[in-house]
Amino acid sequence: MKSIATLTMNPTIDVSYDVPRVQHTHKMRTDNEWYAPGGGGINVARVFVRLGGNARCYYLSGGATGPALDGLIDRHQLVRTRIPIAGPTRVASAVLERETGKEFRFTPRGPTISESEWRECLEQLAQADCGIMVMSGSLSPGVPEDFYARVTELLRPRGIQLVLDSSGAALAHGIDAGSLMLVKPSQGELQHYVGRTLDTPGEIGREAMRIVEAGKARLVAVTMGHEGAVLAREAGPVFLPALKIEAASAVGAGDSFVAGMVFALHMGKDELEAFRHGIAAGSAAVLRAGTGLAHPADIDRLLERVEPL
């Protein structure tokens, strides 16, 4: 069984820490400081490997902060293919205010990527040896909006199955390229794609089914935050409510969902069981504040609470 690979075009060094209370002007002393490699595909790989799989990370890294990201990826024992860039890798922050339990997140846009840099990325991807490629996260400035579509057209003839989790134009071009194994938009991202508000699981299911019926994706999993998620597939849409848990963070919930679902599919689980694993993994990611993502023990425990399908 071939391993998976993930693609992160706009990775981050994720920093999280706690403060007693957020105040303007005043210097706020922090504690519980934590650094982790982040960005969609890297997050997916972190959870996938924790679950027992093997994953190679393709990602862009550069500037003074690039070596720090590389070191963090090595620390998490992830296999990596780094595409060097001139611009600095971005640093994102998540700050937990203990007084209120609220989390504040600060995420830069990321470095501007030159044409030679994103073309080098395509050349590296052309050599990928994997069964599944997960394309996840935003595109840095300078990267063409149809980049994920280009990756799809590059890898599809080689029989590599493709998973897409992005937003805006990058998501739209990626879906329209077609033949995806799985696409995972949020409710808001799907609304942006179809150009109208979708208020109920039924409406979401119908629009997601249009993507399936057009042959653009075999599976469409639409996450709805605390409301749950909808899965569209050839046999029709299904809805699962969210688990009732107290969320401490929103960092990496969608990435953990993708990792849980892809891992289950990779291990031969059927579509509905994989969907349940996605729900459990996404829920596990929000149990703790910071950038820890989902852990297997939490996923297993929560999976027992996900409704059977």
Score class of each variant (00 low, 15 high):
10 N>P: 07
10 N>L: 07
14 D>W: 06
14 D>S: 09
15 V>I: 13
16 S>W: 02
18 D>C: 14
19 V>N: 07
22 V>E: 07
23 Q>S: 12
28 M>Y: 00
28 M>D: 06
30 T>N: 08
31 D>Q: 09
33 E>H: 10
33 E>L: 13
34 W>R: 14
39 G>M: 12
43 N>R: 02
43 N>H: 05
44 V>D: 11
44 V>M: 09
45 A>C: 10
46 R>M: 07
46 R>T: 09
47 V>M: 03
48 F>I: 07
48 F>R: 03
48 F>T: 04
49 V>G: 03
50 R>S: 11
52 G>V: 05
54 N>S: 15
58 Y>G: 12
58 Y>K: 05
59 Y>N: 12
62 G>T: 11
63 G>C: 09
63 G>A: 08
66 G>V: 03
66 G>N: 02
67 P>D: 05
68 A>I: 13
68 A>L: 12
69 L>Y: 04
70 D>F: 00
71 G>C: 05
71 G>T: 07
72 L>M: 12
72 L>I: 12
73 I>W: 01
74 D>H: 12
74 D>L: 13
75 R>N: 14
80 R>P: 01
82 R>N: 02
82 R>I: 04
86 A>G: 06
91 V>Y: 00
91 V>T: 15
92 A>C: 14
93 S>H: 07
96 L>I: 10
97 E>L: 09
99 E>I: 02
101 G>L: 08
102 K>S: 09
103 E>C: 05
104 F>M: 13
109 R>K: 10
110 G>R: 01
111 P>R: 06
113 I>T: 12
116 S>E: 15
118 W>E: 13
118 W>H: 15
120 E>D: 15
123 E>W: 01
124 Q>E: 15
125 L>T: 11
126 A>Q: 14
128 A>M: 08
129 D>C: 08
133 M>T: 02
135 M>F: 02
136 S>D: 11
140 S>R: 03
